[in-house]
Simulated assay, not measured.
Amino acid sequence: MLGKIKTPVVAVLCCVGLGAGVAGCDGDAMDNWDPFAPSSPTSGAAAISGTEKITVAGRSVNVSCSGEPAKDRPVVVLLHGGGDGLDKMAALQRTLSAKDRVCSYDRLGAGASDQPDGPQDFAGTGRILTGVLDRVAGDHPVVLAGHSLGGLIAARYAPDHQDRVKGLVLLDATPPTMTNDIEKAIPETAEGPAGELRAQNLAIFQGRNPEKLVVADGEVRSAGDIPVEVVRHGKPYLEALPEYGPRLERAWAAGQRKWLALSSRGRLSTAADSGHYIYVDQPDVAARAIDRVTAEAARQATQGG
């Protein structure tokens, strides 16, 4: 259990791939999973203003939208990290909504949304995301901006939805091969904080997290020729883990570079003064990255690709 660990760095790192807000690392027991039913058509629904609960595949999903649609610019959709909710990104949403239509939502098992019936996978979270986009964006293109686990989900979703996703911003996103990275960086024989960290993270990625999401490693697939900005943390906080910290820091940096394979228009930058929560530590860096990608996506649409 996270609460039993006294070393501060382990308390931070226990949920490094999912966000530091997870209350515990033992999770709930997995139940039999029921595939999501298709979401019902919502093209005629009124635009959401403020926070509202919508029904997607029979589940209640908490959604927040603000700002007016800008001519020829995509709708921006924010995806929070694991253990967080849309409220964590409220300040960023408020900043961005001065120029664009911006929405966020709580995934199943997070914030004010329903709990999942059982274990989830990326296909299941993708179906919920599709239902949310149907409601908040309709036929408009979108830019997905995700932090940590939210970035991983966005990056897994985009290749299969190139007709809709026209830009990506990954804010210290969970690397695509995080389980393998941890297993290589921290040997099974490790003891103390490192050993506990290894066991806890592997359990988290196997589905013992609030969203019951099994976070499987996978190859980075192309999302087309869309603008992609990958922003990694600049403060090497992972190095604080005794003995194995530098390995983890190098693995994380390598994982950020892997995301550039999403597009030939990918760009990697470092938020020099930020830890894992870039949009909190340096909100201007996050906002500028999202604005650049949104503007570039709008230009591509105007020019026909």
Rank of each mutant, 00 (worst) to 15 (best):
V10K: 01
A11N: 10
V12E: 05
L13E: 02
G17A: 10
G19F: 12
D31K: 13
W33G: 09
A37W: 00
A37Y: 04
A37S: 13
P38V: 05
P38M: 08
P41E: 01
G44A: 13
A47T: 10
I48V: 11
T55N: 05
S60R: 10
V63D: 09
A70H: 06
V77K: 01
L79F: 07
H80L: 11
D84Q: 15
K88P: 02
K88E: 14
T95A: 05
L96V: 05
D100T: 00
C103F: 02
D106I: 08
D114E: 10
D114H: 06
Q115A: 11
Q115W: 00
P119S: 15
T125F: 12
T130N: 07
T130Q: 09
L133F: 09
H140I: 00
V143M: 07
V143Y: 00
H147Q: 14
L149P: 00
I153W: 04
I153M: 12
D160I: 01
Q162L: 14
V165Q: 08
G167M: 02
A173I: 10
A173Y: 09
P176V: 08
T189K: 15
A190T: 10
E191Y: 03
G195F: 04
R198H: 03
A199Q: 01
L202H: 01
K212P: 03
G218P: 04
R221C: 05
S222R: 12
G224D: 10
D225V: 05
V228F: 09
V228S: 03
R232E: 12
G234F: 04
Y237L: 15
A240L: 15
L241Q: 03
E243Q: 09
Y244M: 04
R247I: 02
W252C: 01
R257G: 00
S269P: 04
G275Y: 12
D281S: 14
Q282V: 12
V285N: 11
A287F: 05
A287D: 02
V293C: 04
A297E: 02
Q300E: 09
Q303P: 05
Q303D: 13
